[in-house]
């Protein structure tokens, strides 16, 4: 194969795999005559998405904004806490067990509490998205800061650098690739959080849409909702990948990377 053809195949791989999945799914449904109320075909799901496009558009927009709201909070809080945890041993020791404990709590269990505090609607969804997505950001920022080479630290300290100097000149730039890598993961987690909360406690958003569709046994619409969430997740992941690659080119050394 010529390098050019190779590149074309390489580029179209993601599309091919998605189309492949849909084809297999469609064929399996038809071949085994799976009833629609169990598993609708992708074509039926896409058709439902088109039929209900206005409702889906509205709910998807709501979910997207909710997710991004929670995600923005997670970034702000995650960077702050990550910086504290990563640059101070004392804070690390104090915060680590709490963080791990907190992260182990299923966020589904937290939604009812949030509903008690803030009522049904957007606020618990934003907060759930926030709670579920800040952890990887904290961990990655802290790791990036804490894994500074001891020799580099010695070079800087022997120049009389303060802790703040070290953080600004080396710590943060060094943590940047870790930070961006965590954003990709965090944003997809944020979708999980917001949709989960919408499913339980909202009358807006894709989560709610799927819940109400399933109570009416409209399975194609439920799956349309799933596909929309997946698409938004992929789009956000892709966007942050691009930003990551642009802003931390040095970390990839111009070579091939995943």
């Amino acid at each position: 194969m010529t390098p050019r053809a190779k590149a074309v195949v390489d580029k179209s791989m993601p599309l091919l795999s998605a189309v492949g999945l849909f084809v297999v799914w469609e064929l399996a449904c038809r071949l085994f005559a799976v009833p629609e109320y169990l598993l609708p075909t992708p074509s039926a799901s896409f058709l439902a998405a088109w039929t209900y496009r206005d409702a889906i558009w509205m709910h998807a927009l709501q979910t997207l904004l909710t997710t991004l709201g929670g995600f923005a909070l997670a970034v702000a809080f995650g960077v702050l806490l990550g910086a504290l945890v990563g640059s101070s041993r004392a804070v690390y020791r104090a915060a680590n067990p709490l963080l791990i404990g907190f992260n182990s709590v299923p966020k589904v269990a937290v939604v009812p509490i949030l509903v008690m505090w803030f009522g049904i609607g957007t606020v618990p969804a934003v907060l759930t998205a926030f709670l579920i997505s800040f952890f990887p950001i904290v961990v990655n920022v802290a790791t990036g800061l804490a894994t500074l080479e001891p020799e580099l630290r010695d070079v800087l300290r022997s120049l009389g650098a303060t802790r703040t100097d070290i953080l600004l000149k080396v710590g943060f730039p060094r943590a940047l690739p870790f930070f961006f890598a965590s954003l990709k993961v965090a944003v997809t987690l944020a979708f999980v959080g917001s949709v989960m909360s919408e499913t339980v406690a909202s009358n807006l958003g894709v989560g709610y849409l799927m819940m109400s569709a399933s109570s009416r046994f409209n399975m194609p619409l439920v799956f349309a909702g799933l596909l929309v969430i997946a698409a938004m997740g992929i789009a956000m992941y892709g966007a942050f990948s691009v930003i990551e690659h642009r802003s931390t080119r040095w970390a990839h050394r111009g070579g091939e990377s995943l």
Binding site: G160, P173, R174
Partner: peptide, 18 residues
């Protein structure tokens, strides 16, 4: 405490890649 009149170099050049 750390002196401020020192220059240091190690076996590992520890340059900042960015």
């Amino acid at each position: 405490g750390p002196l401020k009149i020192v220059g240091m170099a190690f076996q590992n050049p520890t340059l900042l890649p960015w």
